[in-house]
Nucleic acid binder design. Structure first.
Lengths: 243, 243
DNA sequence: TCAAGTATACTTGTATACAAGTATTATAAT
DNA sequence: ATTATAATACTTGTATACAAGTATACTTGA
């Protein structure tokens, strides 16, 4: 099995994860990166052999990926669905939906504390850019949105987020790794946009928030076409794996 | 273990379900009905003994319930969260959110076919009322909303629904069982409201749709207070288990 | 009586074993 | 050559076994 030991998912993020979770994280990356193509059929036994674990954690992982709509569990093997443009758009639909919902709650709350917290995360993102740490940047980016969502304390919205987060995280990770190599100028725009978002939260400006959300979508999705074509982005995002 | 063999979930709905799914369905009912109180700690071994299966399906079930926010998996035992008023409100928040989203898609589609399909389901509901079949009524009620959601063909919205559905189904099941005994007059109102919903879809009337959605919420949630108090509804909903 | 340490009875996570079912392939008959 | 049947190599779902870790209770010492 050549290259079976090169993991796409940052290993330091897996410090206390179970074997099943590790497999899920890694498989997710491979599916989203296109390394495992959509339509492929995954066998529990083969995966167990590949990852050198028993079927128990593999089954766990497959259940997780199925709940994230990345694979479809059938009577004979798991069929890879993957992330095509349609799915990415749909994910952003949902993100727009839940963040809009969250914003409606935020406008009735004291958001000063949140704004401070978000500013801190934004600083972290800037540092990550400075040191060209794509993984750290992605982590903070995801954390940014999670922080907003958690702030309203809504367990079922959080449930949705929890289902969406791993896929988003993997996608962002791959996307950012590529852009650090090829589209470095993107990041000033991303940072600006996040600043806009914080302003929207601080001033409770609904339109500004929607604007920045849409812009964020364009930032990631609008550019996807050229990134995505023939899955180049993915091999690009996949090959780099620093410290 | 007295009464361990009385299942709350309709067994005929479990014809080809795996053992793990069965356990999940049943545990879900017991948690939502209050038969298992929130705060209780579930042990895999005890559950395995109770349900007379091995730990494998139990673990599977617990993972499912955790993803539905009904329990919290901790290092030592699974802690029951349950459905209190807050959670029920939150579930309806999410339902309102996704059905609103779906409606926005529907207004750009040809909804005639859907309206017909919904009318059929409504007829089924009427029959279920006539024959006082609470379980069948609940099934059709859930199907009604699922049919609407599936019609727009959005895999990530469907993903949310799939996470929400089992909890909603159980809740509706328990609620309807009780009402067939005590609040029979509720059903004409529920039927009327669903007719309103179909009209909204047919005429693509956004306001009408929101109105009927809110009304539906009031129908289930607004009355919850008295149903819910001291979990009486639940034992009521639990005891009846026909044919 | 109280503190410290040890023993015990839990817990989860993973590996392995087995049963039942399904697709595929090979063989045999027409 | 083609179809029917049988053998084989898969598949999943479940049970069981074991290892490592954690809380509880108990014992021992002061």
């Amino acid at each position: 099995m050549t290259g079976a030991k090169d993991f796409l998912y940052p290993e330091k993020w897996l410090s206390k994860a179970s074997s099943g979770d590790r497999v899920a994280y890694e498989l997710r990356m491979r599916i989203i990166s296109g390394m495992i193509e959509s339509g492929a059929i995954l066998s529990e036994n083969k995966l167990a052999a590949d990852f050198e674990v028993s079927r128990s954690p593999i089954r766990e992982a497959l259940k997780i990926l199925a709940s994230e709509n990345l694979i479809r569990l059938e009577r004979m093997g798991a069929v890879v669905i993957g992330l095509k443009e349609k799915e990415i758009e749909e994910i952003y639909d949902v993100r727009l939906m839940i963040e809009s919902f969250v914003f409606e709650r935020l406008v009735r709350m004291d958001t000063r504390e949140l704004a401070i917290e978000l500013s801190k995360i934004l600083e972290m993102m800037k540092v990550a850019i400075k040191y060209q740490d794509a993984d750290e940047f992605s982590y903070q980016d995801v954390l940014f949105h999670e922080t907003i969502i958690r702030y309203v304390d809504h367990s079922y919205i959080l449930m949705i987020w929890n289902n969406l987060k791993p896929v988003m995280e993997s996608f962002i990770l791959l996307s950012m790794r590529m852009r650090f190599e090829e589209k470095y100028e993107d990041f000033t725009r991303i940072i600006n946009n996040h600043e806009l978002y914080i302003d929207a939260i601080r001033t409770k400006d609904r339109n500004l928030m929607i604007k920045s959300l849409h812009q964020n979508f364009d930032d990631v999705q609008g550019k996807v076409e050229d990134l995505w074509s023939s899955q180049q982005m993915l091999s690009k995002g996949a090959e780099q794996q620093d410290d």
